[in-house]
Amino acid sequence: MNDRYALFLGCTIPARGRNYEMSARQVARRLDVEFVDIAEFCCCGFPVKSTFQKTALVLAGRNLALAEQRGLDICALCSACASSLAESAHQLNHNEELRNEINMELANFGLNYNGKTNVYHFTRILYEFVGLDKIKASITRELNGFRFAAHYGCHYLKPSEYFGRFDSPERPRSLDALIEATGAEAVQYQDKLQCCGGSVLAVDENLAFQMAGDKLSRLKQEGVDALISICPFCTVMYDDNQKKIESVIEKELGIPVLYLTQLFGLAMGLGGKELGLQMNKVKTRTLLERIESGEAIRSG
C-alpha cells in the first residue's frame, strides 16, 4: 500500500471548495495518508475536453508528469479530475505512440511523461487502501441514529474501465459503506445514482437545476439529515445552488450537503471550524449541534 500521494486540487476546490480541502487534509492526517503538494498543478483538462480533446490530454499529461517527477501517484479530491486524469493516464501509460505525440507538446513546459503515474480518488483510497477497519478505529463520536444519503455522482466510478472496477458502477457500495463506518445509516433512495447535472450548467441552467432539484426533492421526502458528496462540482450544484433550485422547482429544501471528509471529521471529534463547516452554503448549525450534544450516542 502506497500511503503518500500528490494531492490534486484542480480548479473548483481552491476557488469554491476550501472546506473540502481543509477537511480532507484533517482526515488524511488522522489516517496516516500523506499528501504532497505540487503548487504547479493546473486544470486536469476536463473543462477543455469538449472543445479540444488533445489539449485536454496535454494538460492532463502535464499534471501526470509533475507527479511522476516526484515518484508519486495522484490523489484527486474532485471526481471530474479523478476521471479525466485516470482516463488520460490509461491512454498515455499504454500507448507509446500517443505518449510521444503528447510529449512533443509537454516540451512547452519543459516536461516529459514516461507513463508511470496512477490516479486515485481520495474516496477510493479511503475505501480500498486505508480500509473500513482503520477508519472505524479512528472514530471517537459515533453517529448512530443519523441518516445520510450517499451521492456517488458520475466520475468517481465511471468510466469503470479506467478505475479497475473496484466498485460496481451500477450498484455501488463503497460510499454507503464509508458512511456506515461512522455508525450512521446510509439511506437507500430512488435515483441514488442520478447525475447532479453540473456539466450542462453552462449550456442550459434550467435543465441542470431540474436534474439537481429532482434528487433534492426525493431526499426531502426521505427526510435525510444531509446529502454526502465527494465532488466539489456536485456540491456546487446541490449546496451552492440549492437556493436557486428552490426557486426553479418552487419547493423549500434546506438539505445540508456535507463532504464525506467533513462527516468523517465530525465522527473523529473535530470541530466545525477545522472542517470548514461555516463555508457550507446550506446551514449546518442545527446538524452540528445535534452531533455535538451527543444526540447520536443517546439515540444509538
Binding site: C11, C43, P47, S50, F52, V203
Partner: peptide, 19 residues
C-alpha cells in the same frame, strides 16, 4: 459552440484553471 463552453476553454487557456 455554445458561449458558456467557449468561456470555459478561454478561462483555462488564460488562467490555467477554470477560475
Amino acid at each position: 459552440l455554445p458561449p458558456g463552453i467557449a468561456m470555459q476553454s478561454k478561462f483555462v487557456a488564460e488562467f490555467g484553471r477554470l477560475y
